[in-house]
C-alpha cells in the first residue's frame, strides 16, 4: 500500500470502564488523511471519553490507538515515550477544547499564544514568530491590531478562533475537537463553522470532531459515528446516516432537530 492508502489513525477495540461504570466499549474505526469524522450522541454516551483516549490523554482499558507518524511508520500511541507523545501532541496534532480558556494561556498575549508551539519546537527568532502569528490571526479573521491583547479581552468566538490558530500553527495533520462550537451563539457558530470548513479543506486536515449538534456534523464531516451508552450503534457516510438513519436512536436524534 502507498502511504496515502494507509490510514492516519486506527482505533481498535477501545474500551474504558470507570469502575463499574462503562465509558465506552469496543470502538474501532480508521481515519484517513484529510478526512473529518464526527462523533455524535447524547451527553454521557462516551463521546468525550473516546476522544480523550484517541488523543492519548487517557489510557484505554482495552484496545489500542495507532498513528502513522510523519516518517510513515504506524506506531501504537500508548507505546510512545512520554516525550515523544508530548512532542506529537504539540506538532502533528491539535486539540481544540470546548472551553477556550482550557486550551489557551489566558494571561499572555494572543501573539504569544500562537507562537508558543513554535517556541516549543525551537524557534528562537522573534521577528519570524511574530510574522507567523500575524499571518495566523489574519487567517482566523482576528484583527491583527489586537495581537498584543490577552485572550481575556477577546469575545467567546474570537477566543475559539485564537485557539484554533494556536493549534494549527505547526501544521498538524490531525486535529481533535471537543464541541468546538459549544457555548457560542448561533451566528458566531455559523461563522466559526465556515472558517473551520475552509481551513480543513485548505490544509487537508484530518479531524475527529465530538459534537451533540448534528448540524455541525453535517457541515464539517464526511463520516459519522453515532454513540449510545458507550457503544457505536451506527456509522457511515454523514449524509447517508443523517438522511436515512437505520437505528431507532439515530432516527430519534435526527427527528429531534427543529425544522428550520
Amino acid at each position: 500500500m502507498t502511504p496515502v492508502d494507509t490510514p492516519l489513525l486506527i482505533a481498535e477495540g477501545l474500551s474504558k470502564w470507570y469502575g463499574r461504570q462503562l465509558g465506552c466499549r469496543d470502538v474501532s474505526f480508521e481515519l484517513h488523511e484529510g478526512e473529518v469524522l464526527a462523533i455524535v450522541g447524547e451527553s454521557g454516551s462516551g463521546k468525550s471519553t473516546l476522544l480523550r483516549i484517541l488523543a492519548g490523554l487517557m489510557e484505554a482499558d482495552a484496545g489500542c490507538v495507532r498513528y502513522r507518524m510523519r516518517d510513515g511508520v504506524t506506531r501504537d500511541v500508548a507505546a510512545l515515550s512520554e516525550a515523544e507523545r508530548r512532542f506529537l501532541f504539540r506538532t502533528d496534532w491539535g486539540y481544540v477544547h470546548q472551553d477556550p480558556a482550557a486550551g489557551l494561556r489566558m494571561a499572555v498575549s494572543a501573539g504569544a499564544n500562537v507562537g508558543e508551539r513554535l517556541m516549543a519546537i525551537g524557534e528562537r527568532h522573534y521577528g519570524r514568530i511574530r510574522g507567523t502569528a500575524l499571518d495566523w490571526l489574519t487567517r482566523v479573521e482576528i484583527d491583527t491590531g489586537r495581537i498584543d491583547e490577552p485572550p481575556t479581552r477577546y469575545s467567546g468566538g474570537m477566543r475559539q478562533r485564537l485557539q484554533i490558530a494556536r493549534n494549527l500553527v505547526t501544521g498538524p495533520r490531525l486535529v481533535f475537537m471537543d464541541e468546538p462550537t459549544g457555548g457560542l451563539d448561533v451566528s458566531v457558530q455559523a461563522r466559526l463553522l465556515d472558517l473551520l470548513r475552509g481551513l480543513v479543506a485548505e490544509l487537508g486536515l484530518a479531524a475527529v470532531v465530538v459534537t451533540h449538534d448534528l448540524a455541525v456534523a453535517r457541515l464539517l464531516s464526511q463520516r459519522i459515528l453515532v454513540m449510545k451508552g458507550g457503544a457505536v450503534i451506527e456509522s457511515g457516510l454523514t449524509d447517508q446516516v443523517l438522511d436515512d438513519p437505520r437505528e431507532p436512536y439515530t432516527q430519534l436524534l435526527v427527528s429531534s432537530i427543529l425544522p428550520p
Binding site: 494561556r105 499572555v108 501573539g111 504569544a112 508558543e116 517556541m119 519546537i121 528562537r124 514568530i129 498584543d148
Partner: peptide
C-alpha cells in the same frame, strides 16, 4: 518553550 513565551511577552509589550 515557555521561558521564551515570557521573553516574547516582554518584547511585544
Amino acid at each position: 518553550g515557555l521561558v521564551h513565551v515570557k521573553l516574547y511577552e516582554d518584547i511585544a509589550r
